[in-house]
Nucleic acid binder design. Structure first.
Length: 834
RNA sequence: GCGAGGGUGGCGGAACUGGUAGACGCCCAGGACUUAAAAUCCUGUGAGGGAAACCUCGUGCGGGUUCGAUUCCCGCCCCUCGCACCA
């Protein structure tokens, strides 16, 4: 019997899949489609276990869907623009292009060794002009739609990466990529008006309730941060100026006892001119500006403020209240100014107590006590208005609405909505990215590159500076152009686009990756989109997934796409950890996928990864667990090799014994029970670990059956032979999404033409699931005391009688009164005694 | 602080709708095969008690509902993730 030899088997089948282009797909409206996508990788050098897990989960699903009769689009490509390429090139005195392509080559080989079912004809790399020209095209289309603008603003600047970062790319004040501190800097750059889509991006989350994890939806909703409220104008006393504030609690307007401006607010500086406060204010502004941004914006940070020397008038009650400036009010949210209602806002409360500012209760507390001196903390709950003139007694939404209506009628304010989401800064001051298709002309100003001139090629002959400054800025051949409008000498924009733009629509491109007329063809995108199942890490919960949804909505508005959302189902896979920590070079706990494949083969690696934990949970790497996976495949192989000769016999015997009939029926039941279990675990629960456990139990059963059979027969019957063949075929097919190479080999040797993924997924038959005899648990007062084997069709009364007569049960019921008997059909009977 | 998820043997995990807790696998122990080892196969494997049959306890902690709770409810502890002065 030949040993299980994964090396030979895997090489053989990988070669065959490649030669036959087994996973190539075409648009085929006659067939139901299934678009399965794993987040495409950045070509960083080598595949790591996180990739392996991601692709293995996807591949198991893809193969399952093939077998279920779907036309499966399962593509792969490379997110190949980005800074690591540049940094590595600087270090190695090489070129990002060289480095990137070398990595793609290595990683392609590694991925192929995993036996993944990709349509390699659709492979794309975002650093190729054929791809990034459509980034430029999108930029220009967005520009036409008024969704792109250029502004000079305070931006997040990473000193280490030497470039600007979008808000989403700053994590706890640090750069998402390199973990270095982010500073603010005044810089001119391009922005995408993602805020125009804030409401739609928020509302769209509702369509994803079924398909997306709640966690991701919540994170996006928080990030968008919608709040409804009102804008109110407060007139400044003895001045023509007024201060506009945003509040979510217009119902507390009568409780505003002071106002606070952000130190950066233009009025902070201008209003204090000529007052006694002038120097104090200037010192304060300087001080706050120098304050660490994280410290300033973190809750519990000390609230510092200064009186500006001026007063404003509460437009509702005409009261004169002081205007302050303080560090806890931020210029980039709302209007950069607030009305302070200390009784009903905990920040205002803290500030008022610290600076001895008046506090007035205007929402009636449950105990009715409106003495602010008794207040221990701000009362932020909704309630009936009080001390609020004509509005007294109104509460909640009605109160807010009535106040808003009043403000509007007096033209001193209006109901409005605020978002936390900021526009997406897409300019990057680096080289290895998509050039922004813009030309600056002395006469015509900012001129878009005409579509016919796309792509604006990223020059590959650029020499990188050693600190990461973009060489484009000094590359004359790139910069100097003629203005497309007036033909006068002009300069090219040297910023490149954020690489998140590449990943915001690559899934669209996969539907027609070689189209050189459009970013994607309408026919293909209508057929394939949305992505039915998207799989990737939770770390992209906001960044990539929000940007992609934004792009999708814009494309949709352009009439290019029908689907409401780009990804109908999202699976966020858990991390791969070892010794309790994320695998990392610095911890020295990295397991190289190549070594595992070399030692055990891809099937073992895949099987272990899927078996060790459900996809969404973190996975603890275990060398012994891998060994276990290998042992299981060897066991399958031995069962197959040891039993396959049985099919060569011409059946003569009849195996008619009663025991044989029972065993055979039990085998048949196991086949169908296993099909049901594995199918539902994959399809309904995406829980591959229990699916594999089911297959393992099936193998255990098959082994025992075969051994018994061989010990009890000299001449296998046709019936036995057929049933056993059905069992083996079923086993092979159920196993094939998880361990495809070994499955293909066995499938072929069983004499089937074609590959396993072309075969139909086994169907179970409800009638074969039922056993003749079932085990019933008998409890006395909720404790298991006996297990009875009874005919499946037994009626309740006989079951009760049989249980009560059972000697073991009588030991527990003797001398006691039977209060009641609960029967759970086909499961359990509970006798309550006293 | 707010929101979400989680806490089950020595370990990874299972128990899907309130119905046998610990499926499946790993580790470990004993046995078979072998000159020996590896591989493989068999048996055992939550804790405590008992020669055994079997009994008691047991799903983070404390309570509750129920014939019956890992599952539902109340209170608490711990861990992970996200948000966090957003007016």
């Amino acid at each position: 019997m030949p040993d299980y030899d994964p090396k030979t088997i895997e090489a053989k089948w990988q070669q065959r899949w490649e030669e036959e282009k087994s996973f190539k797909v075409e648009d085929d409206p006659a067939k139901p489609k299934y678009y399965l996508l794993e987040m495409f990788p950045y070509p960083s050098g080598r595949i790591h276990m996180g990739h392996v897990r991601n692709y293995t989960i996807g591949d198991a699903l893809a193969r399952f869907k093939w077998m279920k009769g779907f036309n499966v689009l399962h593509p792969i490509g490379w997110d190949s623009f980005g800074m690591p390429a540049e940094n590595a090139a600087i270090q190695n005195k090489s070129h990002p292009d060289t480095w990137t392509h070398a990595n793609i080559k290595t990683m392609t080989e590694q991925i192929k060794r995993l036996g993944l079912s990709y349509d390699w004809d659709r492979e794309i790399a975002t650093c190729e002009p054929e791809y990034y020209r459509w980034n430029q095209w999108s930029f220009l289309k967005f520009l036409e739609r008024g969704l792109v603008y250029r502004k000079n603003s305070e931006v997040n600047w990473c000193e280490s990466c030497n470039t600007v970062l979008a808000n989403e790319q700053v994590v706890d004040g640090l750069c998402w990529r390199c973990d270095n501190e982010v500073v603010t800097k005044l810089q001119e750059g391009w922005f995408f008006k993602i805020t125009d889509y804030a409401d739609r991006l928020l509302e769209g989350l509702q369509d994803l309730e079924q398909g997306w994890p709640e966690q991701v939806r919540t994170m996006q909703a928080n990030w968008i941060g919608k709040s409804t409220g009102a804008e109110v104008d407060f007139q400044i006393k003895d001045s023509k100026e007024s201060i506009k504030v945003f509040t979510t609690r217009p119902d507390t307007l009568y409780g505003a006892t002071f106002m606070v401006l952000a130190p950066e607010h233009p009025l902070t500086h201008s209003l204090s001119r000529g007052t006694q406060q002038e120097t104090e204010i200037d010192t304060f502004i300087k001080k706050v500006k120098s304050q660490d941004k994280i410290a300033r914006t973190s809750e519990g940070g000390e609230k510092l403020g200064v009186f500006t020397g001026v007063h404003a008038v509460n437009p509702l009650n005409g009261e004169t209240i002081p205007v302050w400036t303080a560090n806890f009010v931020l210029m980039d949210y709302g209007t950069g100014a607030i009305m302070s209602v200390p009784a009903h806002d905990h920040r205002d409360f803290e500030f008022a107590r610290k600076y001895k500012l008046p506090i007035r209760i205007v929402i009636l507390p449950p105990d009715g006590n409106t003495n602010a001196d008794d207040l221990q903390e701000a009362m932020t709950e909704l309630g009936p208005m009080t001390q609020s003139g004509a509005f007294d007694g109104l509460a909640g939404d009605e109160a807010r609405q009535k106040v808003c209506e009043h403000l509007q009628s007096k033209k001193i304010g209006q109901a409005t909505v605020q978002f936390r989401l900021r526009d997406w800064g897409v300019s990057r001051q680096r080289y290895w990215g998509t050039p922004v298709p813009i030309i600056f002309c002395g006469k015509c100003g900012t001129v878009p590159v005409p579509y016919k001139d796309l792509p604006v090629l990223l020059p590959l002959d650029a020499q990188l500076g050693d600190k990461g400054q973009s060489p484009l800025k000094s590359l004359d051949s790139f910069i100097n152009v003629k203005c497309p409008k007036c033909k006068a000498p002009a300069k090219r924009e040297t910023d490149t686009l954020d690489t998140f733009i590449c990943s915001s629509w690559y899934f669209d491109r996969f539907t027609s990756p070689h189209n050189d007329q459009e970013p994607f063809s309408k026919k293909s995108i209508r057929y394939w989109m949305p992505v039915d199942q998207y799989i990737g890490g939770i770390e992209h919960a906001i960044l990539h997934l929000l940007y992609s949804r934004f792009f999708h909505q814009v494309f949709r508005d352009m009439g290019l796409i029908d689907a409401k959302e780009p990804f109908s189902h999202l699976l966020t896979q858990g991390m791969v950890i070892k010794d309790g920590a994320k695998m990392s070079k610095s911890k020295g706990n990295v397991v190289d996928p190549d070594n595992i494949i070399k030692k055990y083969g891809a099937d073992t690696a895949r099987l272990f990864i899927l078996f060790a934990a459900p996809p969404t949970k973190q996975l603890e790497w275990s060398d012994q667990g891998v060994e276990g996976g290998f042992k299981f495949l060897k066991r399958v192989w031995r069962l197959f090799e040891g039993s396959k000769n049985i099919f060569d016999y011409k059946p003569v015997g009849d195996d008619t014994g009663a025991e044989f009939q029972i065993k055979l029926k039990e085998l048949q039941r196991m086949i169908h029970v296993t099909i049901k279990r594995v199918t539902e675990d994959i399809e309904k629960r995406m829980q591959f670990n229990t699916a594999i456990a089911g297959i393992m139990e099936f193998v255990n059963h098959l082994q025992k059956f075969f051994e018994w059979w061989m010990n009890h027969t000299h001449d296998p019957s046709a019936k036995g032979q057929a049933m056993f063949k059905e069992a083996m075929d079923t086993l092979i097919l159920l196993l094939s999404p998880f361990a495809p190479h070994i499955a293909e080999e066995m499938w072929e040797q069983m004499g089937h033409p074609g590959t396993t993924h072309q075969a139909a997924w086994p169907e179970y038959n409800e009638t074969f699931l039922k056993a003749d005899e079932i085990e019933i648990v008998v409890q006395v007062n909720g404790k298991v005391r006996q297990k009875l084997s009874v005919p499946a069709g037994i009626d309740e009364e006989s079951l009760k009688a049989q249980s009560l007569e059972d000697p073991r049960i009588q030991e527990w019921t003797n001398g006691k009164e039977v209060k009641k008997v609960i029967v759970v059909p086909k499961k359990l009977i509970n006798i309550v005694v006293k």
